[in-house]
Design a protein around this nucleic acid. Structure first.
Length: 622
DNA sequence: GAGTTTGAAACT
DNA sequence: CAGTTTCAAACTC
């Protein structure tokens, strides 16, 4: 791979060496994969640029300067950023020349915010499978970045920087077990910006070891920051359940793409190490945590991961961790494949056979995705959505249940009683609703009949099943969930972090879309960024608290916005249920109309869910 | 780790 | 649209 044109190109861009070579541990800086090389002068840079200025735009919307002393975050970033990065940033800014005034608008305006793409641009970071530009040469696996680069230079109108970044960012696939695992470990980063954002977001949290430090309340955190963090996490496996992981990420901020692949490859395995480290340091103070002890091993392991590592189950019980597929016949091009379904490429930890769900087969992947989407526009949409926003049809029961989210289509369980992860509702941590056609529903998160979670009753009933062991597990999960909920400031959600609806909120590449509350988890995985362990710790480190806070903020944001999506959605309910209770095909929506997802509302954000092209929509927005 | 169970996805 | 088959995850042993 290192001989590939991509690598060559990347290397030519930056001499920076692998993370490990970074002498200064404090150089975490932002995963500044942010700014694309100056070569990207196309207007599309806007998105990239926008992302790179993640924090910059908030306090000083017009601060194009890369070193605004008034902006601590930025300053930090600058300081921690290598010269190259700084240069790149400057160049980008130059090339973009995108009005700084516009930045504010972008930040505040509905459409702009909603559309990370900034009009013509597409927020690649949100699009795992980014469609290629018109001029894309579509050379498939052997795509030549240099060529694309040339194209960009030559044709400013339809620069392929997107493609370039996409391809380059393929290297950034961070995988973790899904958020539906939909997002668990590290998600595939299409755009390096996302990484930057995420890293920035983390930075915000981690950069403040001093508890005495001026509190940076959630509300003081720039929206972008939250969004960023949010988005950063929304990737599959993004289960940065541990602070250590966050730290790791933070330290991997060096935008050297040449290391990204390794990072991607290694992070998966590193997660387990980190998990162990976390366990070991569970009682340690934040100061201790700040010491690089746990991180270093992780980094080392990062580079040592063996190619054939099987997927690792980091945890059992409440959270799953980075899961990867194990497809044998589907070539990872069907929804059977969790990776594919999650909109991410398969990566090393996968044990799939004849996998086509890889960047080198991007064309195939995109085509397949498109095909599937044509068949079912919601095929890649989050499976779990907030109850209040979605399940209008679900009726009263749904809203009565503690879990304010529901599976968009509902399950069809016959034998599992919705008490096992076979059940998508259960797996997604949500209760069943009238949309479900399950039999003997005993979903611990809420039954189809609307009965709320009654632990005692649940326990009794579960005991009846005589499957004590399984029951115990289910209860455990439920209890954990309950605890989380209790701790959460968000009473409406079972878990602060594990919110599938957030995780899987479609984040299509369409423009005019607000950065939706991103999910952290991949689809149905019950893994959360914060595992119960994390959540239970009362004396959690400040960093953790901050992170948690941020998430809460995000969650709130999501809660605030999501309803709008559905309320204004032409589609009353994402899930369509036929009168006879049979599952029906989701409404077919014109893909062409998918672009106008966002309604306009002065001063506010209004989202209209016209079509939720799975979060990573393949369909280029027109 | 192999085999079984399960239910979604895909197919007819 | 209903029934069947295929598939891979979840689960069990």
């Amino acid at each position: 791979m290192q001989d590939s044109p991509v690598f060559n190109y990347i290397n030519s861009l930056s001499p920076i060496r692998p993370v490990r070579s970074i002498p200064n541990p404090n150089q975490f800086s932002s995963l500044n994969f942010t700014s694309p090389p100056s070569v990207f002068t196309s207007p599309h840079l806007t998105s990239s640029h926008k992302e790179s200025r993640f924090f910059k735009t908030h306090n000083s919307s017009s601060s194009s300067s890369s070193s605004d002393p008034t902006n601590p975050i930025e300053s930090r970033e600058d300081k921690s950023t290598s010269n190259e990065e700084v240069v790149a940033e400057g160049e980008n800014t130059k090339g973009l020349n995108v009005d700084s005034s516009m930045r504010e608008e972008e930040t505040n305006r509905d459409d702009s915010v909603a559309s990370p793409c900034g009009g013509d641009t597409t927020d690649l970071s949100l699009v795992p499978y980014a469609p290629r530009g018109e001029n894309d040469t579509s050379e498939g696996a052997g795509m030549d970045l240099q060529k694309m680069y040339d194209n960009v230079q030559g044709k400013s109108e339809t620069p392929d920087w997107e493609s370039l970044i996409s391809d380059a960012s393929e290297l950034l696939i961070f995988d973790s077990p899904d958020a539906s695992e939909a997002f668990r470990c590290f998600m595939m980063q299409r755009a390096s910006n996302s990484e930057a954002r995420f890293s920035n977001g983390v930075e915000v949290q981690t950069m403040q070891p001093d508890s005495n430090r001026e509190p940076e309340s959630a509300n003081t955190i720039p929206y972008e920051a939250v969004s960023l963090l949010h988005r950063g996490i929304r990737r599959r496996c993004l289960d940065f359940e541990m602070p250590e992981i966050s730290k790791l990420t933070t330290r991997l901020v060096n935008p050297r793409q040449d290391v990204l692949y390794r990072i991607q490859v290694g992070l998966q395995s590193s997660i387990s190490t980190l998990q162990e480290s976390l366990d070991q340091t569970e009682n340690e103070t934040r100061e201790d945590a700040d010491q690089d002890v746990p991180v270093e091993p992780a980094l080392q392991e990062l580079n040592l991961s063996s190619p054939k590592k099987k997927r690792v189950k980091l945890d059992s019980g409440e959270g799953e961790s980075c899961k990867r597929c194990n497809c044998k016949k589907s070539k990872c091009l069907k929804l059977y494949c969790e990776c594919f379904a999650a909109g991410v490429y398969c990566i090393e930890p996968c044990s799939c056979i004849d996998c086509f769900n890889k960047p080198i087969h991007e064309d195939v992947v995109l085509a397949t995705r498109k095909q599937i989407e044509s068949r079912n526009p919601l095929a890649f949409a989050p499976k779990v959505i907030r109850n209040s926003e979605s399940v209008l049809e679900a009726g009263d029961d749904a809203s009565k249940t503690p879990a304010s989210a529901r599976h968009k289509r509902g399950c069809n369980c016959k034998k599992s009683n919705c008490l096992k992860k076979y059940c998508e509702c259960y797996q997604g941590g949500v209760g069943c609703s009238i949309n479900c056609r399950c039999e003997g529903c005993k979903n611990a998160f809420g039954r189809k009949d609307g009965s709320s979670i009654d632990m005692e009753a649940e326990q009794e009933e579960e005991n009846e099943t005589s499957e004590k062991s399984r029951t115990a597990k289910a209860q455990q999960n439920t209890e954990v969930l309950m605890r989380k909920e209790a701790r959460s400031d968000l009473p409406t959600t079972p878990t602060p972090i594990y919110r599938p609806e957030l995780v899987q909120i479609p984040f299509s590449s369409s423009k005019n879309r607000m950065p939706p509350p991103q999910s952290l988890l991949g689809g149905g995985s019950s893994s959360g960024i914060f595992n119960s362990q994390y959540l239970r710790k009362p004396d959690i480190s400040l960093t953790q608290s901050r992170i948690e806070k941020s998430f809460e903020t995000v969650a709130e944001d999501g809660a605030e916005e999501m309803p709008e999506i559905l309320i204004h959605s032409p589609i009353p309910n994402i899930k369509s249920v036929s009168p006879n209770g049979k599952r029906v095909s989701p409404p077919h929506m014109e893909s062409s109309s998918s672009g106008s997802i966002l309604g306009r509302r002065s001063g506010g954000r209004k989202l209209i869910l016209q079509s939720i092209p799975s979060f990573p929509s393949l369909t280029p927005q027109h």
